[in-house]
Design a protein around this nucleic acid. Structure first.
Ligand code: FES
Ligand code: FES
Lengths: 176, 176
DNA sequence: GAAAAACCGTAGTAATTTAGTAGACTTTTT
DNA sequence: AAAAAGTCTACTAAATTACTACGGTTTTTC
């Protein structure tokens, strides 16, 4: 019941890519460095995203990758499904075809359907652009905090954890 | 991102057990037969459920297992977590502790939190008793259908798939 | 036009997890 | 006493994961 590194690394990589797209095509090397992911492994993941039509490549020196669509048109579900395959927690035959055990009236499928639907709803309602925006907000907050800290010459009262908690609260208020 | 056989078999087994509890303690053998699960493997699963306090055992000839609580007090989440461990799709350190990569403001954690919450909500809002009731309804419907079929002497117009689809529709209307 | 940067693709592999199986043992009822 | 049933541990084959290695091809830049 775990998401593999493919999905986890892949999402982080795409957020990184989207955040640096204004500087031109983004190389796998630069993403791997910033995100601390094995370069060769990341290449594989990004190639999967290319096959899935989420990014396109620019070959040759100075090349790299860029988004194939606007960040506001790419959902987290698109990304994860591209890397992990189906996100269904249970691939129950009955949702499409026949029961797991034809001798019995199998009721579990109702549960699997609910779980699958809940996951789908969760990932299909968050867009890459939202995450990029949040990331930018977070980084700005951290920068300001750092400057303030340097001015004061001592640790700030507001820890990063508190700032994170605040942003989580904001997201919750928005129903995100 | 898949639930293993532990969770899938375990839930089916508990539904089976709950359905036959009125006949006294239920043996793993009888469950294994009805549900077509390896008996030895099922024993392990049921022992996990015992350790988790969901069932209790009756030793000796004529013994077996019974529910430790009322079926209406056991949620699907209780069962699955007992067998699969945490149901979180991502065990992100930031939800409890520090970031995956302290150099960066990691935003993925907001997504992981949403997915984890959605799964939890889905499994913690379905109770074993509901599934047992549904199972009973399904079986009754099948029985009636079979009798009707025999009276008519030819295949009924309404296939089991159609009946299942109808029940799914009913559940959806109820928000289940 | 050569070198370098970057994408492309396949193959292999160590570690881990999964899905069981086997077998010996204990407890209780009939 | 015999049989039914739970208890426990250990082993294993298969699958999956998370990489690594390496040999390309394409395109740019100097
Ligand atoms: S029919 Fe899918 S689990 Fe039973
Ligand atoms: S902090 Fe959890 S994925 Fe980045």
């Amino acid at each position: 019941m775990k998401l593999s590194t493919r999905g986890r690394y892949g999402l982080r990589a795409l957020i990184d890519l989207a955040s640096h797209e204004d500087e031109g095509a983004v190389s796998t090397q630069s993403i791997a460095q910033r995100q601390n992911i094995s370069e060769s492994y990341l290449e594989q993941l990004i190639r999967m995203l290319k096959k899935g039509g989420l990014v396109l490549s620019v070959r040759g020196a100075g090349g790299g990758y860029r988004l194939a669509k606007k960040a506001s048109e790419i959902s987290v579900g698109d990304i994860l499904r591209c890397l992990e395959g189906s996100l269904d927690a249970v691939a129950c035959p009955a949702i499409e075809g026949s029961d797991c055990d034809s001798a019995n009236a199998c009721v579990s499928k109702f549960v699997w359907k609910r779980i699958n639907d809940a996951i789908a709803q969760a990932v299909d309602s968050v867009w890459l652009s939202e995450l990029v925006a949040e990331s930018h907000k977070l980084q700005t907050a951290q920068k300001e905090q750092k400057e303030q800290k340097e001015q004061e010459g001592r640790p700030s009262a507001k820890s990063r954890d508190e700032i994170n908690a605040q942003i989580i609260r904001e997201m919750q208020n928005q129903g995100i």
